[in-house]
Design a protein around this nucleic acid. Sequence first.
DNA 1: CACGGTCGTCGAAGCGCTTCGACGCACCGG
DNA 2: CCGGTGCGTCGAAGCGCTTCGACGACCGTG
Lengths: 341, 341
Amino acid sequence: MTGRVAGDQVTIADVARHAGVAASTVSYVLSGKRAISATTRGRVLASVRALGYHPNAGARALASRRANVIALVLPLRTGMQVPVVMRFATAVVTTARRHDHDVLLVTADEGPAGLHRIAGSALVDGVLLMDVELEDSRVPLLRELALPGVLIGHPTDSSGLACVDLDFRRAGELCVEHLAGAGHRRVALLGAPAAVYARGTGFAHRTRAGVLAAADRFGVDAVARPCEEGPAAVRRDLEALLADHPDVTGLVVQNESAVGPVLATLPLLGRRVPRDVSVVAVCPDELAEQSGLTGVPVPAEEVGRQAVTLLMRRLRDEPVPEVTLLEPRLTVRETSGGARR
Amino acid sequence: MTGRVAGDQVTIADVARHAGVAASTVSYVLSGKRAISATTRGRVLASVRALGYHPNAGARALASRRANVIALVLPLRTGMQVPVVMRFATAVVTTARRHDHDVLLVTADEGPAGLHRIAGSALVDGVLLMDVELEDSRVPLLRELALPGVLIGHPTDSSGLACVDLDFRRAGELCVEHLAGAGHRRVALLGAPAAVYARGTGFAHRTRAGVLAAADRFGVDAVARPCEEGPAAVRRDLEALLADHPDVTGLVVQNESAVGPVLATLPLLGRRVPRDVSVVAVCPDELAEQSGLTGVPVPAEEVGRQAVTLLMRRLRDEPVPEVTLLEPRLTVRETSGGARR
DNA sequence: CACGGTCGTCGAAGCGCTTCGACGCACCGG
DNA sequence: CCGGTGCGTCGAAGCGCTTCGACGACCGTG
């Protein structure tokens, strides 16, 4: 019987009556918190299905002090890598559902007050914080509120928290290692928009650090530049870069929206890819594949899954590692090759 | 006092004690459902602030039979216009918050069962359905569940529902009117991916219909083609189109991810924009601005705001119009001009 | 055979809030 | 001066669920 009409809510008492047991027994069948005989369990479950029973979320939350809802705090600021965020969000929802939790969407523009509200009203059991900055004001708040939380990205001080992130530093290193290994002696990072660095966003800073460190290690010249969004801006920034450093033969791009324009612009500037310039990107796998890009994919799904899993552990008061860094892997495709002599 | 620690929840009883009134009085102050003297109200509000009181969401939902949460059902299928969805989502969250509601993120892959669950458990008071297809299986379900809902996009049969959408048909017409007015006699629509048409997604079908109807009306030749995602695919589809119809001088693009590649590819095919070919797009404003595109912006924020507002009305049992179509407007920028003679 | 120990079930007590009816009080008109 | 009428406040009764302690029934053991 699929067609239950809302309004005439089926309650646990209805199920109990239908199955000829006490309401508490129904509860125990559903939660598994006490042993119930197979026959009783069978009868109860049959009644549940027959009546189309769904526990009332509010009542359950009130009585059990668990809402079975987690909050996903999305930034939605300028310079965001929208498709990455989206894939991440779906992974979070899917994984949370698998743990019998729902996801409340919170935008960062409510700011710290939003966290207070959510914590105070017991709307959610825990929080997933995205786009964490190196010095993020929400982080101490999270600690203070004693609200179980998992961060995507990691702040400078991650003590007492749980963070998940791609190891962007290593990703930056990988890109340069690849280029250096192919004989490139002068490389450049075309990074995130300047505003993103200014905010102190971890992934941007860490990638840059990785690029520069690896360049240093390999004795390669490296220059790092921010890059704004939009085809025209990308083109301008790229032209400026190549004007200032005409002998760059390896380009690391970490700006999803710049990838297309960069590949489109290089030929116009007289540089063929990969003959004259090799391009390596840190961007969603999808995009890289479409454009035949060599690069390090950002595993949005994997991060989302891990984040939820960690949060669920915290909700069960299990110990979780403070920092979980995913190992980046570089995929070689068509946009990179040996350096021109 | 901002720093309240979760765990020692402040209850309405605490506030009542602190203010020297009954709990019910506090409730009435907060809800405004009964007259309360100014002095009492003042004292209560002061106590609320002093204690950092936030009503327990579960208890409130249980007692009032309103969760103050709405569900946003996102599709997240292939061929989605991700940034549009995102901007839409933020507008929804922001507007909902303004009406004192939170937003639960539900992905369509839970399917109709998800709606059943959500309705049955009284988790949410209403539903926003995105990416509605012409014959959408969720629509009859919504009617049957008597779950207040607002659709983004509109199905063939919208009776008894509330829909909000940009008038895509009109948008398609506007594009062709603009081109025809500039003297173009042969135009083409480079549309959404084939899968989107196959699903019967309203906006794609309606735009195409508008383009073809206006072309007919103006005595202009028109051809409509789907267009897959990814730079390589776009390039292929565009080349094929121009090979089959070399005399097309006006191009309508309705595929966010195709805009960049189209503009990049046309010069390579020996067509300058707008000298040889005019390009008009139906896409997010942001993108159009960045690329100097003439086109009809998709007002994601406006749709989101309207949708929430309508849903709030429905929750208050106020009558709402069955279909709300937003009037599209065409913005002329640099990619369109007079037809070459 | 009496005893303690499980196992399976039940009843009742809340969880924190809203809401309904009742009540006390001041103020009005007759 | 008294009864009616609002107004402002209070107390109590749930909302539907979980959970705790209790209680038979049944088992094995000394």
